[in-house]
Design a protein around this nucleic acid. Structure first.
Lengths: 222, 222
DNA sequence: CCTACCGATCGGTAGG
DNA sequence: CCTACCGATCGGTAGG
């Protein structure tokens, strides 16, 4: 009976507090004690659910990538044109990281601390999806819709960097410029503009339709 | 006599080891002991030069921004056209972070850990330069050389994210895509392409001249 | 720049 | 899930 029991509430709460603390302060900057305090249990009780701090880290980052993978999976089941699928995936990424900026912070912390391990996990969960996008970009290059001098792999990585950068420290970067009127919305608008104008051959027709598509969806986030 | 002595060799070595460790492992992930070991002194000796770990952190990040500021300053003294100055500053940023990826890692770590403090320092040392760039972009928008729908502030922030992202985890991100043939050079080429096509109205003439300009310079880094 | 030492906190275990 | 406890390491000080 107890063998097949689903994760207890306590275990779930440890998990969500760990995501929060690891995202906010990083792994080294987070003590098991602080997580236990936040959950409302004693420190040794935490080791009943997770045998070490390291295991907690691994399960947290793994869960995040599985979650993202599931979000991307949803999109494939709904039959769409390549065009729609492409922008849906782009939006899905934006939504995932922007709805909780600690996700982006967590990923960045992990990429800094354990690049090889993150590579393995991303390879398992995310690489199939990036490959799909790469193939789609190549197809549209042959069709003449997308610019021929795009390097699809680099393009995806750079777009990804803009997304997690915006999510992780978007709100702070405004002060860098000394302008108060720069909102998150204008930042995302500019991101959409940049990533699309780097893509479409005809930046006056196709680009606009794609732009409207993405803008329509991300507005739900704001 | 000793009062006016310049920073001793030991102090300098503590400093450079601190940059290395803080960049590689972050502030919380670095112990004073490990820095002392790397320098070849005992731990308490370090506190003769820096009164606390916190002071060491502040001086390290401050020195990095002063260094970057100095690099940007150089460009203003050499009289150039607005066009050349713009691309020189872009290149200067790329060079600064790509010649030592720990600089980018350090900045990212600090932005994650102490956003407000980084804001203050960037405001002091970097904001004047971003303002110059913003003004130049607005000028070229009026001239009709740059696209009218650019949001200059957001554009600069997003370009900055691509640069430090590439410098900090550029080499790792290649594995994300499962392609071995994606080199740092193609990544930077794609970065230049994206950031320029988002800028120029006429992407077949001006863009190419700008592109050649930047490409010519960053090749020195590779 | 060193030896000697400090209280606090770290991740983690024993045993219930 | 708790109490009681562990060795190791943390940043930092005293005093020379």
């Amino acid at each position: 009976m107890k063998k097949n029991a689903r994760p207890s509430n306590v275990k779930k709460r440890i998990f969500s507090e760990a995501i929060r603390f690891f995202g906010e302060n990083g792994f080294e900057g987070t003590s098991i004690q602080s997580i236990a305090d936040a959950v409302g249990i004693r420190k040794p009780s935490l080791f009943y659910h997770f045998k070490s701090k390291e295991e907690l880290r691994e399960k947290v980052i793994n869960a995040l990538l599985v979650h993202l993978q599931a979000e991307l999976q949803k999109l494939l089941t709904s039959t769409q044109s390549g065009h729609d699928r492409f922008f849906s995936m782009m939006f899905s990424l934006i939504e995932f990281f922007l709805t909780d900026h600690n996700r982006a912070r967590l990923v960045i912390h992990e990429m800094l601390d354990r690049p090889e391990e993150v590579d393995v996990l991303v390879g398992e969960h995310i690489r199939p999806w990036t490959k799909t996008i790469v193939e789609y970009i190549r197809l549209e290059q042959v069709n003449g819709t997308f610019k021929s001098d795009i390097d699809p792999e680099s393009y995806i990585v750079l777009v990804f960097m803009m997304i997690i950068g915006t999510a992780a420290f978007g709100n702070i970067a405004a002060a860098v410029l000394g302008s108060d009127n720069e909102t998150m919305e204008t930042r995302i608008n500019e991101f959409v503009r940049i990533s699309q104008q780097a893509l479409f051959v005809d930046s006056s027709s196709e680009q606009l339709s794609g732009g409207e598509h993405v803008q329509f969806q991300y507005r739900k986030l704001l």
